[in-house]
């Protein structure tokens, strides 16, 4: 087990290093693409700014508070997208048959699938998210302590882990439905968009769904509400909002199991 992990991480590192080197050969292209990524992913925040040119609060949240939510989810999502986003292409690979090639190499398949075509330009989203997060932090009405700062860092990292789990589960789903890669977009990109807005905006059933079924609420909603000293709309006990890291581990474990089941299914059906 430990050996598999080591082999996976090593293989992942090898492939990623190769792609970074290949990208840096065309430095101008890399800079333009990263800038483009920064701008495209920042559009959602521009939309928020436009909204706030007409209003002062959305769902009871002011712009700095929403910036905190937005920055947290974008940073987490950006990290997961950078590290694992390409696992999304599994369906394409299954359809054109190139998935078999991954199974021939002495490196765990998930590591290869995630590292393949590693795209450093995705740093653009992370930078954009972190900038907005920083702005939000500086503007919200919170007494910052070292504990709270640490809490924020843990929030972003466990958020990235939860999104990673969603990416892996979405990729695994494509073993059964190779053409349906867009469904996973609903949970990844859709989830990121959802979490940019405060939970008070949404119907309670939806909030319940992303708390208990697909645990996206632990990415930023629950921890950020705690930071901001607000009640969560489901009225959960306070300690729940600190469970991000635990939820992340559970989600990754579940995603890993789904991935294994998917891979097993592929290897018995070959399609």
């Amino acid at each position: 087990m430990v050996e598999r992990w080591a082999s996976g991480l090593r293989g992942y590192g090898l492939i990623v290093a190769m792609w970074i080197r290949a990208t840096m050969v065309y430095r101008t292209s890399f800079i333009i693409n990263t800038l483009g990524n920064f701008l495209v992913t920042g559009l959602d925040f521009v939309a928020l700014l436009l909204m706030f040119s007409h209003i002062h609060a959305l769902g009871g949240f002011g712009l700095p508070e929403i910036a905190l939510l937005y920055g947290a989810t974008c940073s987490s999502f950006g990290l997961a997208d950078l590290l694992l986003g390409n696992a999304d292409r599994i369906g394409q690979r299954v359809r054109d048959g190139s998935f078999d090639i991954l199974l021939l190499r002495p490196v765990p398949v998930l590591a290869q699938a995630a590292a393949d075509r590693f795209a450093p330009r995705r740093l653009g989203r992370i930078v954009q998210g972190l900038l907005v997060l920083g702005w939000g932090i500086s503007r919200v009405d919170v007494n910052w302590t070292i504990g709270k700062a640490l809490f924020t860092v843990v929030m972003v990292i466990s958020g990235a882990a939860i999104f990673s789990a969603v990416f892996i589960a979405g990729a695994a789903f494509q073993f059964w439905a190779a053409e349906a890669s867009e469904v996973s977009n609903s949970f990844t990109y859709g989830g990121c968009t959802l979490l940019q807005y405060p939970p008070t905006v949404f119907a309670r059933e939806l909030v319940r769904g992303v708390t208990f079924v697909v645990p996206l609420a632990f990415v930023n909603w629950l921890p950020a509400l705690r930071l901001l000293g607000r009640e969560d709309p489901l009225g959960l006990p306070g300690w729940v909002s600190c469970c991000g890291p635990l939820v992340a581990v559970a989600a990754l474990t579940a995603a890993g199991l789904i991935w294994r089941a998917g891979l097993r299914s592929y290897r018995s059906t070959g399609s």
Partner: peptide, 17 residues
């Protein structure tokens, strides 16, 4: 599979590795 992978070489004519 992965232990075997080190000991075999595979060439697909229609698909590149």
């Amino acid at each position: 599979r992965t232990r075997l992978a080190r000991r075999i070489g595979v060439v697909f004519g229609q698909r590149t590795t």
